[in-house]
Write a protein that binds this DNA or RNA. Structure first.
Lengths: 165, 165
DNA sequence: CCCAATTCGGACAATTTGTATCCGTTTAAT
DNA sequence: ATTAAACGGATACAAATTGTCCGAATTGGG
């Protein structure tokens, strides 16, 4: 079991977008450069976020990506689902329906093993769904300190973001 | 994110072993044939269970695998860890330490995103750890009905298991 | 109103991971 | 000694992940 590293990239990218004034965005190259990531691959993950409706994409000059809804309405689970998919990671193959006792398993009822894994995944999902991007962005901003926030602001302005005063 | 299918195989195999009289075992070929699984690959998973200390392996003629401890002391998490490994599936690459704001992230404290994923994985692990193989085996046996249990018993005896009376 | 720069979007290649098998070695019972 | 079985490594094959590229669409300026 392993989680695509793109999930981390996408989560950080969303946290950055959440730190901008509402409605403002950044293009894929800027979001990639902020964390020194491969631009082409970062772009691909942003496309996935776009397709999932987490961010809106604007094409053409001065285009880019912005959060499609308030950061308090975007969870880490949304992001993982957008990048890695939301199908359960445990896929029952119903092997209990094979072999000498094949006919003696109750129909319609999933086997206890499948149930247990489904419950565990639900617990995982619920916990991730409880973490909002707005919380993440606030914690990150707090950790950076005032000087860090100023550096971020300057960087964003150099990429076309205008902070209202 | 995806879980190795071998986890399901191993879990069912342990449930079968749990249904035998204490101390009795079955060889790899028998365990594979019970669910019509590829014998060579099943054998490899059983080796992983053995290395993890979940089952004991007896070499040589009349050898085979048996549970290393009571089924009530083996959890589904033990099995997943044995087959898929127990390293966290989310591996933080610390990309926040790259780029223009690299120097402004607090040291020693993991980033909020990593914390959230770690918490979610802990919830998953705890839930799986709460499911005992003894529970699984009991549910499976109950679902099979008396006739199914009789078929199972006959099959096991044909593979060298002796049920005390 | 058209051109050109810019940017997203999907198709395509490379790398890694997982699946599956086979064979030689080691070990134990008959 | 012979047979039966687990163990470990080597190896082939399939699939998912990672990574790059080029075309399509759109905006802004002239």
């Amino acid at each position: 079991m392993k989680i695509a590293e793109g999930v981390e990239w996408a989560a950080h990218a969303c946290a950055v977008l959440a730190g901008l004034p509402a409605g403002q965005g950044l293009n894929a190259a800027a979001l990639a450069s902020f964390h020194e990531l491969p631009p082409a691959y970062m772009a691909k993950h942003l496309q996935a976020l776009s397709k999932a409706g987490i961010v809106t994409a604007v094409r053409g000059a001065q285009g880019g990506y912005a959060l499609a809804r308030p950061a308090s309405k975007v969870t880490l689970w949304d992001i993982q689902a957008a990048i890695s998919g939301s199908e359960p990671s445990f896929r029952c193959q119903d092997i209990r329906r094979k072999g000498p006792c094949a006919g003696y398993s109750p129909r319609g009822v999933p086997c206890p093993i499948t149930c247990a894994f489904a419950a565990a995944e639900a617990a995982y999902r619920d916990r991730l769904s409880a973490t909002l991007i707005s919380d993440v962005a606030r914690e990150v901003a707090a950790g950076m300190g005032a000087s860090g926030r100023e550096v971020f602001r300057t960087w964003a302005e150099r990429h076309g973001v205008s902070f209202a005063r």
